[in-house]
Computed example of a mutant assay.
Amino acid sequence: MTATAVRKVVDRGTTLQPKTPAALPAPPVFDNFTVGTIRRFIHAKFSAKRVFSVGNLTQELKTAGIIPDVTSLTSVWRLLHDMGFRYKTSQRKVYVRKESLDFVCRRIAALRALWHHQEEGRQVVYVDETWFTTRMNHSREWVDTTQDKSSNMYSRQVPPGEGEHLMVVAAGTANGFIESSFLCYTAKITSGDYHGEMTGELFIRWLTSQLLPSLTEPSVLVRDNAPYHSQLTENSRCPTTATKKGDLITWLEQHRLPIPPGATRPELLLVCQQNRPTPQYKVDNIIREWGHEVVRLPPAHPELNAIEQVWGCMKRHICSSLQRFTRVDLQARLAEARLCATQEVWAAAVRRSRDFEVGYWTSDNIHDAVGPIIIDLASDDEDIEDLSLDSDDE
């Protein structure tokens, strides 16, 4: 190549301007209607148990006319992320705890009994016990993450420790607390299960001196199966594995049951358990002596006891208002919380419990001569918001 040709090539390279890259097309903008349509489209795939990828989803959305034909896979991928969808390990193994047959039958029996008592015109009274502590606070509160956790500027400071506990037992109806039934006392322990603070004798004394004298009309008392509610009468007690062989024989003779000749202790115990008498509870008998009835809820069903939701409202108030975290402060806040549990709160709690009753009537496929009658306590009022269940059930 000659010197002239080399110079021309060099000159051409220095005079050429760099090419401007072509502008990328703006990503498409989807309105709320389109986003909602795409979400329902994907949920329909979930219901149909269909697996999809971004590619075939994009093609199907184009075919259905939901998105324009020029929409790219990248645009659909970004949209899915903006909508909250993620490509991750799905929950393929979901185990649902199956209720035992005994629990289901006890729930059905309780619902039927409650409905029949309401049909008879009895007032429904919800009974329960709970606790309040001087260290109550919300599980989540605003904090200043720029400060050290040990600093007073990090968050509202709650003193360490369990604090003092106040025990409360009360009863109420759709009209509110039965005032003379409200009993509050200081617990002896500051940790552990609060149920140990209530005994059968104390509960019966409260029942006969405060609650039952205040009921002016035939009522049905709804409550759980706490140990102090469930003391058996002497006639309905059945021998246990700790019963001696001589006592087993005596029990069989008292109940006029045949004693197998030469039977060993385990064989005698088996005969006793096979002839176990129907449970009779001291508390239930006392309530019936006063002209009222009892409905025992199955374990782990706090949603059927409306007072559990009222406890939740009161505890939220105390958690938000405690400032000095002393017994005096807690007692003052508890008095305020009682005033917060108005008739409207109670009516909303009862309505919600009855909604659960209707749900169980449907899910358990309960049939009776007449379906359950649900009374609208306040059809013109909205339900109280944020009613939550307390976790005091047995």
Rank of each mutant, 00 (worst) to 15 (best):
Leu270Cys: 08
Leu221Arg: 01
Val283Asn: 04
Gln254Cys: 11
Ile286Glu: 13
Asn235Asp: 13
Ala226Lys: 09
Glu234Arg: 09
Arg256Ala: 14
Val222Phe: 09
Asn225Tyr: 03
Pro277Ala: 08
Gln231Met: 06
Cys238Pro: 04
Trp290Arg: 12
Pro218Ile: 00
Arg265Asn: 01
Asn235Leu: 09
Lys282Trp: 01
Ala242Tyr: 10
Tyr228Val: 00
Pro218Arg: 04
Tyr281Asn: 03
Leu269Trp: 09
Pro277Tyr: 04
Pro227Val: 00
Leu221Lys: 02
Ala263Met: 06
Ile286Ala: 11
Cys272Ile: 02
Cys272Phe: 11
Pro239Asp: 03
Val271Ser: 08
Arg223Phe: 15
Val220Ser: 05
Glu253Lys: 15
Tyr281Leu: 12
Cys272Gln: 07
Asn275Glu: 08
Glu289Asn: 14
Leu268Gln: 04
Pro239His: 06
Arg265Leu: 05
Thr233Ala: 04
Lys282Ile: 11
Pro279Cys: 05
Thr243Val: 04
Thr250Arg: 15
Arg223Val: 00
Tyr228Cys: 04
His255Ala: 02
Pro261Ser: 10
Leu248Ile: 02
Pro261Asp: 12
Lys244Leu: 10
Leu269Pro: 10
Thr233Ser: 08
Thr233Tyr: 03
Gln231Tyr: 02
Gln274Val: 00
Gly262Thr: 00
Glu267Val: 06
Ile287His: 03
Asp224Pro: 06
Thr233Asn: 07
Asn235Tyr: 02
Asn285Glu: 15
Gln280Glu: 15
Thr240Cys: 06
Trp290Gly: 01
Thr250Asp: 15
Pro218Ser: 08
Ile249Pro: 13
Gln273Leu: 15
Asp247Arg: 11
Ser230Met: 15
Asn275Leu: 06
Glu234Tyr: 06
Ile259Trp: 13
Asn225Arg: 15
Cys272His: 08
Ala226Gly: 08
Cys238His: 04
Ser230Arg: 11
Lys282Ser: 03
Thr278Ala: 14
Arg256Phe: 11
Arg276Cys: 13
Pro266Glu: 05
Val220Arg: 03
Tyr228Ser: 05
Gln254Ala: 14
Gln254Phe: 08
Thr233Cys: 14
Gln273Ile: 01
Arg256Ser: 14
Leu248Cys: 09
Thr233Ile: 02
Glu267Ser: 12
Gly246Gln: 10
His255Leu: 03
Glu289Trp: 01
Glu267Asp: 10
Asp284Met: 07
Asp247Glu: 14
Leu270Gly: 01
Pro218Lys: 07
Asn235Arg: 10
Pro218Thr: 00
Ala263Gln: 05
Asp247Gly: 00
Arg237Trp: 01
Thr240Lys: 12
Cys272Lys: 05
Asn225Trp: 02
Gln274Asn: 14
Gly262Cys: 05
Leu221Asn: 01
Thr278Tyr: 12
Ile259Ala: 11
His255Pro: 02
Lys245Asn: 05
Ile286Trp: 07
Pro260Met: 06
Ile287Glu: 06
Gln231Cys: 02
Ile249Asn: 08
Ala226Asp: 09
Asn225Glu: 13
Pro266Thr: 00
Asn285His: 12
Ala263Phe: 08
His229Gln: 09
Asn275Met: 07
Thr233Lys: 06
Lys245Ser: 10
Ile287Tyr: 07
Gln254Tyr: 09
